[in-house]
Design a protein around this nucleic acid. Sequence first.
DNA 1: TCATGATTTGACCAACCGGTCAAAGTCACG
DNA 2: CGTGACTTTGACCGGTTGGTCAAATCATGA
Lengths: 217, 217
Amino acid sequence: MTKRSARPHPRDATKPRTRIQKRNRELILGAALEVFSKHGYRGATLDQISSEAGLSKPNLLYYYPSKEAIHRELLHGLLDTWLDPLKELDHGGEPLDEILEYVQRKLQLARDYPRESRIFANEILQGAPTILPDLEGDLKALVDRTAATIRRWIETGKLAPVDPVHLIFSIWALTQHYADFDIQVRAVNGGVDPFPGAEQHLNTLFRRMLTPDQGAS
Amino acid sequence: MTKRSARPHPRDATKPRTRIQKRNRELILGAALEVFSKHGYRGATLDQISSEAGLSKPNLLYYYPSKEAIHRELLHGLLDTWLDPLKELDHGGEPLDEILEYVQRKLQLARDYPRESRIFANEILQGAPTILPDLEGDLKALVDRTAATIRRWIETGKLAPVDPVHLIFSIWALTQHYADFDIQVRAVNGGVDPFPGAEQHLNTLFRRMLTPDQGAS
DNA sequence: TCATGATTTGACCAACCGGTCAAAGTCACG
DNA sequence: CGTGACTTTGACCGGTTGGTCAAATCATGA
């Protein structure tokens, strides 16, 4: 009848209690970001992550119950960061400017956080085994909301008619391409940093696509 | 001094000698395509591939010396298929039509061969460990050639001015997105097949982007 | 039919990998 | 300074995986 007591992991999987827990969890997630982004989920090993974090392997498993748990928490944190630029879109702003600014925000995210982008890409490529529910839930809701706004913008004639959902896909595809396929892009680009060119290219691309015809009544 | 003889693999890694070799190599590559595309290189196992191919594991390794060798040969075969649409571009044709047709060919490839696309995406994501030389060689050469033609088209005023290389990146990004991120696309799209919409969307997108201004002198 | 090379496989192995455990060390606070 | 909870780790384990090997089977043509 003594307490089953002292499960190997800190009291709860939820919020960190002590200073040490906070520090080490951050250390682990940082290391996991590096290793998962470089080798993918399957290619990454707990030894690599623990070594990168400066902790022992059993110590990792003291803070997280399994490799999968680390991956899951990392991914959920990422999703928020990744959706932020779309949430910041001002539904009452000037249509063309709002979209062009969104494109630039997303491109900067791809440039500044390529590891996050690659982990996300890897997850989707594998069929989104851990975040499919979030895609079908939060993400779809956010896209539906944004699409409705874009549709309204088109109706008022401030934007050329395009399929709003495919427009959003296009923005994602074009911006993430520079992060996820970085090696290919640089190989073809002769090793030159593609981002300055991309910034200007995407700006003119979307401006031409979305500027309504002048001749309309 | 007897011959070192009877290395476990068929005479050469080059061309198949017998009917059986041809059949089994194709069987293996087909199975590898299925398994690698579903689980990635690291996540795929020889057992899965051999089972999918209907052969025993040692039999696999009779035809290919290692897992990596299978992957390498598969990847090289894919690259050709993948570059074909760009090679078919008629440098003497009508600029806008040629590019729009190229977009459609690439999109159909993404729809009809998503497994090939995903294997390719996975390879690039991991830093192109096996085909980087091909990217820097054949692919870059092909892109440079195409970019030169596009530049000429722009100079003759048949195409709006855009950066040719980034234009090619855009085509790749937009078309492959529908294959590689299929799950995400469908999740957001409410499970609806996105390809019909994509076909029309990309057509209007590139037409608007590339049609030269009418008012030009 | 028989010999020879091509093909196939069951048994096996060493390395790796995710995860466990008991014991030892450390921290904070009364 | 003691004590109970928190943290850390060396040693270990069972399952998986890429790959090997010797022996068996098959195909072919002289």
